[in-house]
Simulated assay, not measured.
Amino acid sequence: MASQRIRPEEGRRMSACRPGALHTAFNMLALSWIIISELLLSAHCLKDLKIFVPEAVIMGNAATLSCQYDLEQAALYAVRWYFGQEEFYRFVPREAKPTFVFAVAGINVDLTNSDATSVTLKGVTRELSGTYQCEVSEDAPLFHTEIRSAHMQVIELPKGDPVLQVDKKVIGINDNFKAVCTVGPSYPPANITWTVNGREIHKTPLQRITLDAFDGSNTYSSLEMFPNSQALQSFFATNYQHSVKVQCGVSILHVFHKNVEVRIGLNRAPATTISPNLLGLEGSKRYANGDPDNSALTGASQRCCICCEALGAISLAIFTLTVAQL
């Protein structure tokens, strides 16, 4: 059978059709991708992932960490919890035993109070202060995964109550005043604020406030007020006030608050002045010539000596007459 030869005109027509066919195929592929993307975007999937971790927990107490999310009717594949970079809890609903606990130093999971949205830690220690992460993954076909993190602080409370000491129980208008507040060791160190009659005292040149705080040791704060300080002046501004309440407030984050106070009396009597006559300062005016011994106390001594000599002469005369009669 003889082969058919393609005429040059037909070859040119076939070559001209090939670019149009490629263009059409590209358009169909692009349209298919757009349709698939729209279907994926409109499908139900994981969203609104939020993590809730206590900002501060007292050492020895339990801590519940939760992870809230919306799957929009999609299936859940797994929820994982991490301390730092170490996974310590996993929930996989498709497994026969959905909960898994992994050994991480210091972490003790309470399985009876842990599920797909929360995990509870028992007897937390200071070493568990740090960053926690919740990772949620939806099931096939997308396996969409999101992760959130939050920080938790484990605090150690002081074992005793704060102690407030003052240097005076009663103060006058010209007196200095000092108070010291002491708090036992805590983690983190306690914060101390000062109030007088409910009004917070701020640091100024005439109202000195110090704070010494170190991990593992007592925390000290002192308040020192000088006569011309605003606080002391306000104490004596009214006549009906006879005492003031000095208070130190102790707090550790938002978990621990403790106040200790003492009442200080106000002495409104004017400052005592001593008359110069009582000190003998006027005596120096009675003597002339700038004699350095002409002080009031020296003049009085000289007069006493003269009296003593006269008394001795009289006593000697009486004694002589008595002997002569005998």
Rank of each mutant, 00 (worst) to 15 (best):
I171M: 02
L211R: 12
E224M: 12
V183L: 00
S229C: 09
S222T: 06
I209G: 01
E224F: 13
S217F: 06
R208M: 05
F214W: 07
D175N: 15
A179Y: 02
T210N: 13
S222C: 02
T204F: 14
V183A: 01
T219Y: 08
K203G: 07
I192Y: 11
G172A: 07
V196G: 08
S221T: 02
N228F: 13
I173M: 13
P188T: 00
S229A: 12
F214G: 07
P185E: 13
C181P: 13
A213G: 10
N228S: 12
T204C: 13
N197R: 04
K178M: 08
I171F: 04
V180A: 02
M225Q: 00
A179P: 05
Q207G: 03
G184C: 11
P227D: 10
P188W: 02
D215I: 14
I209Y: 00
G184F: 07
G198L: 00
Y187S: 15
N174V: 03
P227I: 08
N228I: 04
L223T: 06
T219A: 05
H202V: 14
E200I: 05
I192D: 12
F214D: 12
T193I: 10
H202K: 15
W194K: 07
T193N: 14
A231N: 01
I192S: 11
C181Q: 10
Q230C: 04
R208Y: 03
M225R: 01
I173Y: 09
I209W: 00
G216K: 00
P185F: 14
V180Y: 03
D175C: 09
A179I: 03
L206W: 09
P185K: 11
L223Y: 08
N197G: 15
Q207L: 03
F177S: 08
G198K: 02
S186N: 11
P185C: 10
R208G: 02
G172M: 03
N174D: 06
A213Y: 09
D212S: 15
N176K: 12
I209F: 02
V196R: 04
W194S: 09
N218P: 03
Q207E: 08
K203F: 12
N191Q: 12
Q207I: 02
N174K: 06
T204H: 12
D212P: 05
T195N: 05
T219G: 08
I192A: 14
K203H: 15
V180D: 09
S222G: 03
Q230N: 10
M225P: 01
C181A: 14
T193M: 12
N197D: 15
L206T: 13
D212K: 10
Q230E: 14
A231K: 01
V196P: 09
N218L: 14
S221V: 00
G216P: 00
A179T: 04
K203E: 15
I171S: 02
Q230H: 11
V196I: 15
P185D: 10
I173P: 09
E200T: 04
R199C: 07
N197E: 13
E200F: 06
N191L: 05
T204I: 10
N176P: 07
N176F: 14
C181W: 08
P227G: 12
L206P: 02
G216H: 00
T182R: 05
L206D: 15
L211Q: 09
S221G: 05
R208E: 14
S217P: 02
W194Y: 11
Q207A: 01
V183M: 01
K203V: 12
P189Q: 01
V180K: 11
V180G: 04
C181F: 09
N176M: 14
D212T: 13
T182D: 03
F226G: 04
